[in-house]
Design a protein around this nucleic acid. Structure first.
Length: 605
RNA sequence: GGUCCGGUAGCUCAGUUGAAUAGAGCAACUGCCUUCUAAGCAGUAGGUCACAGGUUUGAAUCCUGUCCGGAUCACCA
């Protein structure tokens, strides 16, 4: 049949149906009215459930251009589309300025058959572009907390989303392993630890070091209070406190490479890295390359000289070097202190160059909190002015802080939500729910443990990724993260349900299905068809929440289908085969989408 | 003070390249487990989209102003 081969050719083009309609409509307008309509000007929406149809062309802008009534225009375009695309459209109706098109079941079924068994459905072909994603960026003086979790999940997910869209991806991490904050925990350990180690105390290394960072804070506070009581002004008291002087001296000694300080620094950092590794493995963060600030903090100094030669920077009388960004609406920014040492941003310039030399990426994405928006605006501008290669590709993926109902988390007030503790808590809740439901009593201890991790971390990751990264979010430790509704476990549960059916019978490609689709079946196919576009959107917007919302909607739609329509006891064998294919494709898209969020999906739960 | 971001249901959030009666989840209430997993499904209730103007056939979405919240403007990182 002509119609069948036409539909097959459309499906094999692998263009999304929306874009297909867009280009078909543009051609129709050209042919009918000699109107050359830019395709982007055409608004194609999914038809609202209360109207008949699948997709809707919004006619208002055309009405104006073509000076026709909405009804006439809708009828003419609709008739033409039906005539020109045999078998694709079956009906049309025009209500007010909306032309509603119904797409044939034959198309949808053909689409399903062509894709249900494709494990890489939706993934983009390699595009030859390389993107670097820097994320996590921990300080080595304390353990990871809730804010780091948002960063890690976001960075990992965005990197994987880029990969799924055909990019070559390099994940990097910069460890902030030097500076006064590191010295603080070192000094406190020297003073109070009596040689305590992770081994001797059984405390995870990053937590042990973090404890001494906190100890430094309490000790400093005590000393400052004493000094203030003696009449020292508060601002001076902090600098004059003996413990702070020790930290300052230690920083000087570190920079001088004093052997015993270096040995202590290396030992304590190794404890922290061992702790981080454990956490990273658990939450699934990985890096292709880790940079250490201790290696890179002197980089970029050459650029100060070059910048002066190029006239990008200027020097003040005291010898400090600046860049004037007032023309760009920003301020003057210092790039080198009067004593000749580099500041934070100068190191970053050096790191930009180093990364570029090593990886030659087209895009370089920094996953960093929105408190550094200004910093990255300045960094990019400076790199562009200095003419560093690919500096146009520098992008700041800025995300909002995670806050408590009472405001920001504060180390000093002990309100920081620890990453390991939170993960433990989530896993414990998952275990409790699972035991109560008692559906996996035959699981071995190992299998149960793995399931609890999958569910607990799934709930946590979904919770942090389902929100637009740009927005700051509120976490209430009093209320535990949900396992029902718009959550990771809901989606995981749906996947397990589908798998339970597919264990009874696999979907087969052999069946030649010609039956018509029920609304619940069609809703699912429509959503499945949209996955590739959504994956692209998530990449363009660097926004995993797009995927989280999609995967939830898909699961929700499947569950409606599941409760209403039986797969194994379908009306006919043909229907059963169709529904098995729907199940298989839904499970596979759910798994793919969740994987890009870093969330595993269980076979049973 | 300058710049940037945000304000949508009791709570947490979608929707912001303008489009049909603004959507989910949680919490509340009503039903549904002798049929493929009830971590589910179906339904009820809940809104001056911060406020005031403007542009438009059409505004939560664009423009202007105001109010509220946050970030930032360091010789800190």
């Amino acid at each position: 049949m002509i119609a069948d081969s036409y539909i097959r050719s459309l499906i094999s083009e692998e263009m999304s149906i929306v874009n297909e309609i867009r280009s078909i409509t543009a051609r129709a307008l050209q042919h009918l009215y000699q109107y050359n309509c830019p395709e982007n000007d055409l608004t194609i929406n999914q038809t609202k459930p209360e109207f008949e149809g699948d997709y809707t062309i919004v006619l208002f802008s055309l009405i104006k251009q073509l000076k026709k009534s909405p009804e006439q225009l809708g009828r003419e375009i609709g008739d033409y589309l039906l005539a020109q695309n045999p078998g694709l459209f079956t009906k049309h109706n025009t209500i007010k300025g909306f032309l509603n098109l119904t797409i044939s079941d034959r198309y949808w079924i053909g689409f399903l058959q062509a894709n249900f068994a494709n494990p890489t459905y939706g993934a983009g072909a390699p595009n030859g572009k390389r993107v670097m994603v820097e994320y996590s960026s921990p300080n080595t003086n304390k353990p990871l907390h809730l804010g780091h979790l948002r960063n890690n999940f976001l960075g990992w997910s965005v990197a994987e989303i880029f990969r799924a869209n055909g990019y070559d991806v390099v994940k990097t991490c910069i460890a902030n392993d030097r500076g006064i904050h590191i010295c603080k925990s070192m000094v406190a350990w020297q003073l109070f630890a009596n040689g305590a180690t992770p081994e001797s105390t059984g405390i995870k290394g990053d937590h042990l070091v973090g404890d001494y960072y906190v100890r430094f804070g309490t000790e400093l506070k005590k000393q400052v209070e004493e000094l203030v009581a003696q009449g020292v002004p508060k601002e001076e008291a902090e600098k004059k406190a003996p413990i702070m002087q020790l930290a300052q001296q230690m920083l000087v000694d570190w920079e001088a490479g004093k052997p015993e300080v270096m040995a202590l620094w290396k030992m304590m950092n190794s404890w922290v890295y061992a702790g981080f590794d454990q956490t990273y493995r658990r939450i699934g963060s990985d890096f292709d390359k880790t940079y250490y600030e201790s290696d890179t903090y002197l980089l970029g100094k050459d650029w100060v000289k070059k910048g002066l030669e190029k006239g990008v920077f200027f020097q003040k009388e005291d010898g400090s070097v600046w860049i004037d960004l007032t023309a760009e609406g920003l301020d003057e920014k210092i790039v080198q202190r009067k004593d000749g040492t580099a500041v934070y941003i100068t190191q970053d310039i050096g790191l930009v160059e180093l990364k570029q030399k090593e990886f030659h990426a087209d895009q370089s994405i920094y996953v960093v909190g929105d408190e550094q928006n200004y910093h990255f605006k300045v960094l990019k501008l400076i790199c562009q002015k200095l003419g560093l290669p690919a500096s146009d590709g520098i992008q700041h993926l800025s995300y909002g802080m995670v806050e408590l109902p009472t405001g920001r988390m504060k180390t000093r007030e002990g309100t920081v939500v620890d990453a390991d503790d939170l993960a433990d808590e989530m896993v414990a809740i998952a275990a409790k729910h699972t035991e109560e439901l008692g559906k996996v009593k035959d699981f071995s201890t190992e299998e149960l443990k793995a399931l609890y991790e999958t569910l607990g971390l799934g709930a946590l990751k979904f919770f942090l990724l389902r929100v637009d990264p740009k927005k700051r979010m509120i976490f209430n430790p009093e209320e535990s993260i949900d396992f029902h509704g718009f959550t990771g476990p809901f989606v995981q549960y749906t996947h397990a349900r589908i798998k339970s059916i597919l264990r009874k019978e696999q979907a087969s490609a052999a069946a030649d299905i010609s039956s018509s689709l029920l609304p619940l079946e069609k809703n699912l196919i429509l959503l499945l068809e949209q996955y590739p576009l959504l994956l692209q959107t998530a990449c363009e917007e660097q926004n995993p929440s797009v995927l989280a919302i999609y995967v939830f909607t898909l699961a929700k739609t499947y569950n409606s289908f599941y409760t209403e329509l039986s797969v194994m006891n379908a009306e006919t064998e043909e229907k059963k085969q169709l529904r098995l294919q729907l199940c298989a494709m839904t499970a596979s898209v759910i798994a793919a989408g969740m994987r890009l969020l870093g969330i595993r999906v269980p076979e049973r739960m």
